[in-house]
């Protein structure tokens, strides 16, 4: 007999041209279920008009990002146990800093356009991947192997970023991390964008992106590294190289 908890989901609701409200649903759950499971249950058994996004259910598609009690979570891999206690109220809200389309669904087009602007790589040669403990030395022929990029384009980092809250054109964590992944010495054409008003200098070191990123991208560290790359590229340019 699995453990049983009673939890209440307090879900943000908003349809076009209507005022927003919160609907509450109390349900019996197994605490080791994921938040997304509970939301799907609400949709299946309580309210068919609830809009939310998901596809893969295993942290790959990046569609199921929401705010749970004010913190950005990838809901398909966040267990109820990890964010709640028995009889808790869980407030579920859409990501911030994206226009709401319906209920928990936001328009992430802006993020995808920015990812495209830096030509974010979906896959990269394994020899260029910044992984925790790479083999002592890659062999040249290893570059035939590719690796999926860590970033799911889930938008959690954008939602958590204080600068992204007020400045729409600011590239933000995931696109800057994608630029860092390119390395400016391999892609000098990205320098103009990265060194621009909407680029790497606008980060104010809150490191919220790194705190919420569900996929080890560590955008905060990558932004800092991108600064180093930018400065050295600028200095190289300055000396005409």
């Amino acid at each position: 007999m699995p453990e049983q908890w009673t939890v209440t989901l307090r879900i943000y609701r908003q349809k076009t041209n209507e005022p927003s409200r919160y609907d509450t649903f109390t349900l019996e759950v197994n605490p080791d279920e994921y938040i997304l499971d509970a939301i799907e249950r609400v949709w299946a058994f309580h309210d068919r008009s609830l809009c939310f996004r998901h596809a893969c259910h295993h942290s790959t598609c990046g569609a199921c990002g929401m705010r749970v009690n004010g913190v950005e979570k990838l809901t398909c891999i966040t267990t109820i146990r990890s964010v709640a206690r028995p009889n808790a109220v869980l407030t579920i809200e859409p990501l911030r800093n994206f226009p709401i389309i319906s209920d928990l669904v936001v328009d992430m087009g802006e993020l995808y356009r920015k990812m495209e602007a830096v030509e974010a790589r979906a896959v990269l040669p394994i020899t260029e991947a910044e992984i925790e403990k790479p083999p002592h030395q890659w062999k040249t022929e290893d570059s035939q192997y590719v690796r999926l990029s860590d970033c799911l384009e889930c938008g959690l980092c954008i939602s958590a970023c204080p600068v992204a809250a007020t400045s729409q054109p600011y590239l933000g964590p995931a696109p800057l991390a994608a630029a860092q992944d390119h390395r400016l010495d391999r892609r000098p054409d990205l320098l103009t964008l990265i060194d621009s008003e909407h680029g790497v200098w606008r980060c104010h070191s809150a490191f919220e992106c790194t705190a919420v990123c569900p996929s080890f991208v560590d955008p905060g560290r990558r932004i800092m590294d991108l600064r180093k790359q930018t400065i050295s590229a600028k200095i190289r340019h300055f000396f005409g190289k």
Partner: peptide, 25 residues
């Protein structure tokens, strides 16, 4: 491995001196 050029999408790079490496330095 490089993706095709993004000529089709031009992000507003803000050519004005909003912020740049020298100001930041």
């Amino acid at each position: 491995m490089n993706s095709p050029s993004s000529e089709h999408f031009n992000y507003p790079t803000g050519r004005r001196a909003g912020e740049n490496a020298w100001l930041w330095l």
